[in-house]
Design a protein around this nucleic acid. Structure first.
Length: 875
RNA sequence: GCGGACGUGGCGGAAUUGGUAGACGCAAGGGACUUAAAAUCCCUCGAUCUCUGAUCGUACGGGUUCGAUUCCCGUCGUCCGCACCA
């Protein structure tokens, strides 16, 4: 018998070519079948495909192939998130143009993806740096401007004085720029913003509608939007400061108003600035606060500091009670009104501040069983629920009632013609600043004219193209220094004017690409009909690191595109799945300390010495320390490239291994043993199919009901059902376990067939089971499935065949094995007809030897029968 | 600090609504085939014991239940997100 090994190196390219020639994966917008849109987060073309990408795309591909076989019109596109800093860094370091660098990377990575055998619709491919794409993005921008969804305002940003660019908060490490190492300054810059806060409430409320999103992601977005209900209180100033007569404060705890002992304002608060004009020491303090880093580390270590401005406010409920106003370094101008009232007894930070500056501490809430006369707050603030004390007319109320009482009374009072308090909902969410002082991004299509102000580029003049002749010899934005590009005539008055040289944040590019895929050829940003038909994305798959930014921005963009008529829905992603990473052990010689040298897996030999796994450097023989499982990274050299695997075992093995064992939402450890095991299974399937092909030629597949043949058919149909259900739930590891079971179940019957010991029924059942096996491995191992199907004499390709249908009669057994417990412990089994009624089951159970023995002749106290599940006899 | 998730063999992990704990894979050990190796096939594989059987066992301690990996309370541990948010 020929037992030729399956050779992925020749088979895989052959089938990839065959699929492409038949255009099997190109979705048509006019296909009448029900639609299914599956999408994986598109990659940044950094140079090479990472193994983590391939796990992500394989998951999407399994879903795409399965849904296609189930009769859906599947859209499964791919593109490139191609603008961004790394291209400019490469340009500065290697004197290569960002455009060339990016498109070369795309070419390499496209080939890598094709080698994975992904069923992608390459006809719809685009890169966000294609002029075609960013042209439409500029159209969207102008539409957003027209609808009032864009604003230009001044805000505080992290400014790197060496690279001369704005940095995101994440790019500021210990107060220094992550690239330059220069001390980051806080600068006030005028920037373009998308008004995402206009949608804050809707973005929050709609989270509840996203039933197929992980709770974790919804919770993260919920916290990020950060809604709070409070009261805006206007405190009268004891004496006017300039033309200011009041201090506006936002609080969520107006109930504690009688515990107030000071006011604190941000360093940038107008009142602080005003007071600093006549106070040199205060001005110095404000300057110091401004230069304080905004990084997490800086904030954690920063001491709570304040400076008394000398200004005093009057308590809203007591004209004789005045409170000092401090400038404090922990009050943020960006949140609320940039001013707070401090209630030391109810807030730990306020208490620390009060203790430091000798301010009064008045407890206003105590536990319900406390004693108002003796209850004190000294070192620890009381933040729990309870009952009001020392609060005059609020005493005895619950804080919630006191809140409403204070609100009611202050709403009725007036100050400067306005109510003294207003109920206000506040959000933590900030508007989205999209200006970047970069070259490699989408130009913002606006023009600055001295006479007309800021003027949009007329749509007819779009696209505003990036100039190709550009110098990267200096840091900063090269567009700003370009000799001609920025000079333009004002579209309104025709005089000399200046282009906006900032480009858009690259998160803008990825906020609508999923909509563009529905009609990437359209002249408008979308074809609304196509967008509405394809969207929402039925299954979106990507990393958890995008839980907030990308996913929130996309939700905003979809709403903004609805307002501007480009599509008609609010939520872009119906189902969201966040997959885990691919991790690998690390190896290091020279000790685990920082001066050790990292080794890549290919430089290491692993040995089992006395039951202990040890690693040795191949070149030197030196023992290496085996380190923790970590995300694959270049710095730790624990990477495995997709080529290493496809060159050796082939794409199917890599796909199979990455989805087996670990649940998809969890990290998977890449091990050589695991990959070898997956490849063994590839060969095992191939052997099974070869046996079937040789010994069952022309045999008609037929399910059997009884005997050995029936057992084969039942196993095949049960597993067929289970695999389909598992894929629907993205339980790839469970689906794979079921497929192993089917292969195990087929081994012995197929041997009987090969040895000529099988009757017609068993032959038919085996033939059918093998055909089912080939179809259910196809989503994960598509090339192997095609090769197997061809060997079995199939004429069309598996990729164009429907998913097999299981026979419901075969997935239930006529006889079932019921576990029998005595007093909750399993003592044996009862085999009985599936449809036996409760009386018959009870009778049969009580007749069992071990039950009789346990009962010792007495009647059972109770017999619990859970139909089709279990029997428990209580003695 | 606030919020959330999780904790099952040597390892990755299974286990409908509370109903046989450990499916499936990896590793390990033993055997068959072979001159030998690879490949393949078969067997064992949670712990303990008085071993054809029994007891214990899903981080730990309690509770609810005929029955708990699953539900409740507490403790410990790990991971993640947010964080001067007023």
């Amino acid at each position: 018998m020929a037992t030729e090994r399956y050779n992925p190196r020749t088979s895989e390219p052959k089938w990839q070519k065959a699929w492409a020639e038949k255009k099997l994966f190109e979705a048509r917008n006019d296909d009448p079948k029900p639609k299914y849109y599956v999408l994986e987060m598109f990659p940044y073309p950094s140079g090479k495909i990472h193994i983590g990408h391939t796990r992500n795309y394989t998951m999407g591909d399994v879903v795409a192939r399965y849904k296609r076989a189930k009769g859906f019109n599947v859209l499964h596109p791919m593109g490139w998130d191609a603008f961004g800093m790394p291209a400019e860094n490469a340009a500065m370091q290697n004197r290569v143009h960002p455009k060339d660098w990016t498109y070369e990377n795309i070419a390499v990575m496209r080939e890598q993806l094709k080698m994975m055998g992904l069923s992608l619709d390459w006809a719809r491919e685009f890169a966000t740096c294609d002029v075609d794409y960013y042209h439409r993005q500029q159209m969207l921008f102008l539409d957003f401007v027209e609808k009032g969804l864009v604003t230009r305002k001044s805000s505080k940003v992290n400014w790197d004085p060496e690279d001369m660019t704005v940095l995101a908060n994440e790019q500021v490490i210990d107060g220094r720029g992550w690239r330059s190492g220069a001390l980051v300054e806080q600068r006030e810059l005028t920037q373009w913003f998308f008004k995402i806060t206009d949608f804050a409430q809707d973005l929050l409320d709609s989270l509840n509608l996203l039933e197929e999103w992980p709770e974790k992601v919804k919770l993260m977005q919920h916290n990020w939007i950060g809604r709070s209900e409070g009261l805006l209180i206007r405190w009268p100033l004891a004496k006017p400061v300039g033309d200011a007569h009041e201090l506006e404060v936002y609080t969520t705890r107006p109930d504690t108003i009688f515990g107030a002992s000071f006011m604190a304002v941000a360093a940038d608060h107008p009142l602080a600035r005003k007071a600093a004009e006549e106070n040199v020491e205060l001005a110095k303090f404000i300057e110091e606060v401004r230069h304080m880093g905004t990084s997490v580390a800086a904030l954690e270590t920063a001491e709570k500091k304040g400076f008394d401005t000398g200004i005093r406010v009057v308590h809203p409920f007591d004209e004789t009670w005045t409170l000092p106003v401090y400038v404090a370094n922990f009050v943020l101008m960006e949140y609320g009104t940039g001013a707070i009232f401090g209630c030391p007894s109810g807030d730990q930070r306020d208490l620390d501040f009060a203790n430091k500056y000798g301010l009064p501490v008045i407890p206003v809430v105590m536990p319900e069983d406390g004693d108002a006369k003796t209850f004190q707050v000294i070192e620890e603030a009381y933040v729990d629920d309870g009952v009001m004390i020392n609060s005059r007319f609020l005493d005895g109320m619950k804080p919630e009632k006191a809140f409403n009482e204070v609100a009611k009374l202050l709403e009725a009072k007036t100050i400067g013609g306005r109510p003294m308090a207003e109920r206000k909902v506040n959000f933590r969410l900030r508007d989205w600043g999209i200006s970047r002082q970069r070259y490699w991004g989408c130009p913002i299509p606006m023009i600055h004219c001295e006479a007309c102000g800021v003027v949009p580029v007329p749509k007819a003049d779009l696209p505003v193209k990036l100039p190709d002749d550009i110098e990267f010899d200096r840091p900063g934005n090269p567009l700003d220094r370009h000799p001609t590009w920025r000079h333009v005539k004002c579209p309104q008055c025709g005089r000399d004017a200046r282009r906006e040289t900032d480009t858009m944040d690259t998160f803008v590019d990825s906020s609508w690409y999923f909509a563009r895929f529905t009609a990437p050829w359209a002249n408008e940003p979308t074809e609304p009909k196509a967008a509405d038909e394809w969207l929402a994305v039925d299954q979106y798959i990507g990393g958890i690191e995008h839980a907030i930014l990308h996913l929130l921005y996309s939700r905003f963009f979809t709403r903004a595109m609805r307002e501007t008529g480009h599509l008609n829905l609010a939520e872009p992603f119906k189902g969201l799945f966040t997959q885990g990473m691919v991790v690998h052990e690390t190896y290091r010689v020279g000790g685990p300390s920082n001066n050790g040298r990292w080794l890549s897996p290919s430089e290491v030999r692993l040995e089992d010495v006395g039951g202990k796994r040890l690693a040795f450097e191949i070149a030197t023989g030196e023992e290496a320390t085996i380190g923790a499982l970590e995300k694959m990274s270049k710095s730790k050299k624990n990477t495995v490239s997709p080529e290493e695997i496809t060159d050796g075992y082939g794409a199917d093995t890599a796909r199979w291994f990455m989805l087996s064992d670990s649940p998809p939402e969890r990290d998977v450890e890449w091990t050589d043993d695991g990959a070898a095991g997956a490849h063994r299974f590839v060969q095992r399937i191939w052997r099974l199919v070869q046996i079937a092909a040789e010994s069952l030629p022309g045999v008609k597949p037929a399910a059997a009901k009884d005997g050995d043949a029936g057992a084969v058919s039942k196993a095949a149909h049960k597993i067929l059902k289970a695999v389909g259900e598992d894929i629907e739930k993205l339980g790839f590891n469970r689906a794979i376990a079921r497929i192993y079971e089917l292969a195990n179940a087929l081994a012995s019957p197929l041997n009987d067939v090969a040895e000529g010991k099988a009757d017609a029924a068993l032959k038919g059942a085996c033939r059918e089971a093998v055909e089912i096996l080939v179809h259910i491995i196809a989503p994960v191992m598509p090339h192997l499935a095609e090769e197997c199907w061809e060997a079995l004499g199939g004429t069309e390709m598996v990729a164009e065949r429907p998913w097999p249908v299981y026979d419901p009669a075969l997935v239930v057994d006529n006889e079932i094995v019921l576990p029998v417990q005595v007093n909750g412990k399993k003592r044996g089994d009862l085999t009985i007809a599936r449809d036996a009624d409760q009386g018959a089951v009870e009778k049969a159970v009580l007749a069992l030897d071990f039950v009789q023995k346990a009962l010792e002749g007495k009647a059972p106290r109770k017999v619990i029968i859970v139909p089709q599940r279990i029997v428990n006899v209580v003695a």
